[in-house]
């Protein structure tokens, strides 16, 4: 997977991961992939729902040692 940009949202609480993701996805082009790293437990359902609503594709998601990794393909 070709990651265009990585957003470090670790340690941030709701609603910041989603606010930062929205802002950062504006920096990449359609079809490119943004990686988001977050530790907020709610971010899993938050980012999934946000992608669904905004039309971006959540390509992959994984959890490693308390950190969630999201890979979002910009619509």
């Amino acid at each position: 997977m070709n990651i265009e940009k990585t957003l470090d949202a670790k340690g941030l609480a709701c609603p910041m991961p989603i606010v930062r993701t929205k802002k950062t996805i504006g920096d990449i082009e359609s079809g490119q992939i943004l990686e988001v790293q977050a530790t907020d437990a709610g971010s899993k359902s938050d980012l999934t729902a946000w992608c669904k609503s905004s039309g971006h594709e959540l390509v992959d998601m994984k959890e490693d040692d308390g950190v969630f990794y999201f890979y979002i393909k910009k619509a």
């Binding site: 709701c14 609603p15 989603i18 606010v19 993701t21 929205k22 946000w50 609503s53 905004s54």
Partner: peptide
């Protein structure tokens, strides 16, 4: 304000 800011991120 958390809901408002979250909603703004939802465009």
């Amino acid at each position: 304000y958390i809901i408002a800011n979250g909603a703004a991120a939802y465009d």
